[in-house]
């Protein structure tokens, strides 16, 4: 089993619903976010291109945050989801320093490191992550890459895609459809 997400950059309108859904679902502290939207504008008028990306933790196969964690608090759970065990986290910040995507933060109230969990509590029940379900343009696709009939496998089948900073060697599992 390998959970992954495909983000359709051609469909995303940058509304930010995924961000708010995540904050609500996961009780994210005020002013913080586990997912965010990047707008990338390139070219000059009239040849301007805009790419909108809903980004979050890449749940890397070769996760540097897991490698650098001194206590084993950052770990890879079933299905490749990268998680933090708060009771083992000392808040040293090694994982934050090691993440090329800046996808982690120190929880302001509790001090442990917090991040996107792919809404594991929902996924365990067979549901999608909150961001995926709330997206009004259906541009987020989640599922098991090993299952050819999953939403994410189907989305990747006939489209070109890219991952972020592949040269970092992290083998990220967020696929951006282009």
């Amino acid at each position: 089993m390998r959970y992954a997400m495909a983000i359709d950059t051609a469909k995303c309108v940058g509304c930010g619903d995924c961000v708010v859904a995540c904050q609500t679902e996961n009780n994210v502290p005020h002013g913080y976010c586990r997912d965010w939207i990047v707008e990338n504008v390139s070219g000059s008028y009239p040849n301007v291109q805009i790419e909108l990306r809903s980004e979050r933790c890449n749940h890397c196969d070769n996760a540097p945050c897991v490698r650098c964690c001194p206590t084993g608090s950052s770990h890879i759970a079933e299905g490749g989801i990268v998680l933090v065990t708060p009771e083992e986290c000392i808040g040293c910040g090694a994982c934050i320093e090691s993440c090329p995507y800046d996808a982690r933060y120190v929880h302001p109230d509790f001090g442990y490191v917090d991040k996107c969990t792919f809404c594991k509590h929902r996924v365990d029940k067979g549901q999608n992550p909150a961001c995926v379900d709330v997206c009004p343009t259906h541009c987020l696709h989640f599922g098991d890459l090993d299952d050819p009939n999953s939403d994410v496998s189907k989305a990747l089948k006939n489209r070109d895609w890219k991952v972020l900073a592949p040269e970092a060697g992290t083998k990220p599992q967020l696929y951006f459809l282009i």
């Binding site: 961000v19 976010c33 990047v38 990338n40």
Partner: peptide
């Protein structure tokens, strides 16, 4: 031009 920003 190339510009990148957090719109959310």
């Amino acid at each position: 031009m190339k510009e990148e920003l957090f719109v959310s």
